[in-house]
Amino acid sequence: MILSIHGQVINSENGTPVENASVIIIDGNGSFPEIASMTDFEGKFSLENVPLGKYQIRAYGLKGEEGKKTVVVTHKMEAIKIFVE
């Protein structure tokens, strides 16, 4: 089953969306496309074609902010939030 991971990158200090951040999968127990999703003006991103499993997601902002999140991809995936600082 191939699914997607979608969500939003947020600045942990002020709670605002982070635009133009790169969001990538850096580890997981399935094969994942190595394309980097860039956040839109709402901080939203989407990583496609991800098999069921557990993944480490990282976000990198233009100002050097970083954040990470562990995600378990299931059939009922909800939007995730990644806080960067």
Binding site: S22, I24, I26, G30, S31, E34
Partner: peptide
């Protein structure tokens, strides 16, 4: 490799010449 490198050439040298032998596309532990 990490995300963003999808589509990168995987190449070798044969007799001093470069040849792409694969197109990178997936990560996996």
């Amino acid at each position: 490799t990490v995300g963003g490198q999808s589509g990168a050439p995987v190449y070798i040298k044969l007799n001093g010449k470069r040849y792409v032998i694969g197109i990178h596309n997936y990560g996996n532990s």
